[in-house]
Amino acid sequence: MFNPTDEWYSCLFGQDSPTATLISVPIPPITPFPFGERSSLGRRFLWQADTPLPERRQAALDVGAHMWIPNQFACDSITIGESAESARRRLHEWWDVTDAISARKTVGQLLDGMHSSTFEVIAPLVAEAMKKTAGHDPSAHREFLATRAAARGSSPGYWITHYDALYTLRTSKVLRNSVTDKYFPTHIRAWDLGRVPFVVRTALRSGYLQEDECWPMLFAALDSARGYYANWRQFAHGVVIGRAYWSAITDIGTTAEKAQVAGDWVNALLVRSDSPWRRLPLWPEEHPQRRVT
């Protein structure tokens, strides 16, 4: 499991890092948050339920919390205020989801590691190429990936494209202000798991899913996130790097900007007094596996 340290936190967010958990060490409230109203970071997290959700349900929604400010979704309700027509349009345009079957399939792919499963194969190769390890260079890796793909009946071009994207991302130092090579992750499960709640909530609003099947999907994402991460800080790292990798696959020119946007989102979640991540840790406080790095 990847364990970023306080040095990583300072590198990523450009500020002093906490010395203990964000729950036990109080951080002075920031009210209002010092960003203009035109910035998504100037918007409040929306809390609208009359009574708090059970902790497990709230934690499951919190897995997707980095998407709540830009989309203005409430933090404490599975329902969203967006119209059904708008929700269906976005699911179609962004995810090619048009019905219950495609919604369930997309959630399943995210739970299985839609982007991380590929990342986990190519990231060690890119790391060795950057270290200039004997026998490891981009040409040799592309040949290996092409052979591997052919043996599995998949497209060599897919694997080579993803390898080149990650190699360019790392060698171009696009993320030099976000994370050092020393703390580069071996997986980006947070990027996949963190999108499950958005798809589920939007599919529910679209009428493709029923609420009684939505919560098990959200709980599956939460349980998986707990299996990979010790706390929200680690999870945040996966979101930022995952978004950068996803962007590099299609347009390396926008990667720095999109990584910064993701960094801003998770920064707000980590420090703001109205943040769902500040109200509830990833792991229950009394759980023996909860730990801080």
Rank of each mutant, 00 (worst) to 15 (best):
Q72F: 11
A84H: 11
W94T: 15
F45W: 11
A134R: 14
D274Q: 01
R142D: 14
L22A: 09
G135P: 10
V199G: 13
C75Y: 04
T250G: 08
H187W: 12
P29M: 01
T180S: 09
G238R: 05
N71Y: 14
P32Q: 03
T171A: 02
T106P: 15
A100Q: 12
R195E: 06
R56H: 05
H66Q: 14
Y183W: 13
Y245P: 08
S154G: 06
E213T: 12
D6N: 10
Q48E: 12
G14D: 06
T98R: 12
I160A: 00
T106C: 10
G253R: 12
P70M: 01
E7P: 06
T254Y: 06
S275A: 04
T254V: 08
C75R: 06
R170G: 03
N231Q: 08
G194V: 08
S86K: 14
H141W: 12
M114S: 10
S83H: 11
K131A: 08
Y9H: 14
F144D: 12
T106I: 14
I27E: 14
D251Q: 13
V174P: 09
A149T: 08
R104I: 02
A230D: 15
W8S: 07
Y167V: 01
I188C: 09
W159H: 09
Q15P: 09
T161Y: 05
D264A: 03
R291D: 15
I69V: 11
R170S: 00
I241H: 06
A236T: 03
V25M: 07
A221M: 04
V266R: 02
A190S: 13
D181A: 04
P288N: 01
L61A: 04
I78L: 00
P124L: 07
I80A: 03
A259K: 02
I252G: 01
G227N: 02
C214N: 06
I160Q: 03
L125V: 15
R142V: 12
E93S: 14
T171L: 00
D137E: 08
G14M: 05
S77Q: 10
L269Q: 01
Y228P: 08
P29F: 03
T147D: 13
P32W: 04
D181W: 00
R88H: 14
S17V: 10
A149F: 02
I122A: 01
G227Y: 02
R272N: 00
M114A: 11
G238M: 02
R189G: 13
P124G: 01
R89T: 14
W265V: 02
R195C: 00
E143S: 05
D212M: 00
F13Y: 06
G207T: 09
I249V: 15
P29Y: 04
N231S: 07
P28W: 00
S206I: 05
V25R: 10
W215R: 02
S116H: 03
P70V: 04
W265T: 08
N3Q: 11
N71R: 12
G194Y: 03
R278G: 12
G242H: 01
T254C: 00
E286D: 12
D264R: 07
E55H: 09
I252Q: 03
F119V: 11
S86Y: 12
F219W: 12
S139W: 05
P197F: 00
G81N: 05
D251Y: 10
